[in-house]
Design a protein around this nucleic acid. Sequence first.
DNA 1: AGGAGTTTGTGAACGGGAGAACAAAACGGG
DNA 2: CCCGTTTTGTTCTCCCGTTCACAAACTCCT
Lengths: 225, 225
Amino acid sequence: MTARTPDSARDIPEATVARLPVYLRALTGLAEGGTTTCSSEELAASAGVNSAKLRKDLSYLGSYGTRGVGYDVEYLRYQIAREIGVTHDWPVVIVGIGNLGHALANYSGFRSRGFRVVALLDADPSRHDEVVAGLDVRSFEDLESIVAENDVSIGVIATPAVAAQAVADRMVAAGITSILNFAPSVLSVPDGVDVRKVDLSIELQILAYHEQRKSVAPAGEVSAT
Amino acid sequence: MTARTPDSARDIPEATVARLPVYLRALTGLAEGGTTTCSSEELAASAGVNSAKLRKDLSYLGSYGTRGVGYDVEYLRYQIAREIGVTHDWPVVIVGIGNLGHALANYSGFRSRGFRVVALLDADPSRHDEVVAGLDVRSFEDLESIVAENDVSIGVIATPAVAAQAVADRMVAAGITSILNFAPSVLSVPDGVDVRKVDLSIELQILAYHEQRKSVAPAGEVSAT
DNA sequence: AGGAGTTTGTGAACGGGAGAACAAAACGGG
DNA sequence: CCCGTTTTGTTCTCCCGTTCACAAACTCCT
Ligand SMILES: NC(=O)c1ccc[n+]([C@@H]2O[C@H](COP(=O)([O-])OP(=O)(O)OC[C@H]3O[C@@H](n4cnc5c(N)ncnc54)[C@H](O)[C@@H]3O)[C@@H](O)[C@H]2O)c1
Ligand SMILES: NC(=O)c1ccc[n+]([C@@H]2O[C@H](COP(=O)([O-])OP(=O)(O)OC[C@H]3O[C@@H](n4cnc5c(N)ncnc54)[C@H](O)[C@@H]3O)[C@@H](O)[C@H]2O)c1
């Protein structure tokens, strides 16, 4: 009874948070296909997960389904979007407009999924002439003013690894509290700042590990040495 | 029953496998800095993990440290590389040479971390003239022969989401058994084929979720300071 | 040579997440 | 109005991963 939790303060398990965006995408796909209602089984199939897991995940948000019927696609989609916080766009700055930065800047998926790139920054003056995806590449020195003016809280780092920590420090000082890091380096940031990393090499190395095992131990048994 | 586990087939927990590449990178950094020996504490700090976790992870590989001393950087580096399977390069093909594909093709971190891009493929004939990072962009039709000739087992998908499943099917048919997917779509593949996905939007949405809570949640918690 | 000081490797406790299974709720048909 | 069918929401159990804590093993200094 005292356990009456205010709607906004339920805490959702991290593993569930990581899957909500997948459900959101699956629902968008269903909606575009004309589906207006779906069962947990169908949605789970679209999202590539177990249906029991899906239902449990959704139960953390509340009771948005109807027993015997299923979920209203549009309604559930909105509820998840609201829970994640992507009912309105988040302003984002990208720092490091090299190979990867260009690709990110040109990525249309940003806009359609709750984010809006407000600035592209690079330390190299020779890049400042360029216009990428309709935005000027600006000096890294402008970081603070851009963050302040646009109320930016999310930053993306696409610089070489050696520069990543310095860029992160500067972002944090400017008021950014969430960082997505593409550089292969470990960032240290104060409490209250979230960092997530995307590391291509690590993903490939994990695949390599399993690949190596496939050829060594397909089914049969083995020989040491 | 068949529970006989050969020495060489120790199975390493998935969570540990995912961290080995991080340790490898940290060790490379230490070696470049001239360090020849390090303690679990130092290495853990470089890799951004808890030292107990590091020691437990390494214990799955064997006993490569010396009590009272620590680990020989070069020796441990080699042992981890061997375990992951990156003592020799793995050939890789990239399919979909658009914004992202270009960045990947130009990424030098591939080569230095155990991978070699052997071919760039795209379905769009107008791309076939192009040379990216010293490689011709070739027709997707050449997939089978390239995979066969170079003994490729790892493929990277950087096509639009709608094409991803078809590309994956074709890769699997050609003999590829590990796929790294950048397209935001759920791939279904036969048993024995590994798929890992890298999804930028999901990472940002996870950040957005926590970001939203930061601004809403300070109530009910011991705040102050 | 022996003892003090380090640091590894691991056993054990703990917490969180995955999946199976089921009771409660809604619908429809007669 | 009642009963069978469908599908959700939740409970329970098991497993994996994290962390603590400590004995074993090695070095170095006296
Ligand atoms: N290219 C890829 O496909 C790829 C894949 C995975 C990871 N990465 C990583 O992403 C990062 C960027 O890769 P890239 O290929 O785009 O490199 P790049 O060299 O092409 O681009 C880096 C850009 O960062 C800018 N920069 C350097 N220092 C800066 C600073 N202090 N402040 C602001 N900008 C600065 C440079 O001027 C350059 O434009 C690297 O860390 C790389 O390891 C790249
Ligand atoms: N650009 C980014 O930063 C970014 C970030 C995250 C995810 N992604 C995802 O990566 C994928 C590629 O993004 P992009 O920006 O490079 O798109 P893009 O449109 O620039 O490039 C896609 C390329 O794939 C080729 N292609 C299409 N169908 C093909 C097929 N059946 N076989 C072979 N090639 C085919 C196209 O000719 C094109 O060259 C998309 O799924 C996108 O959602 C991109």
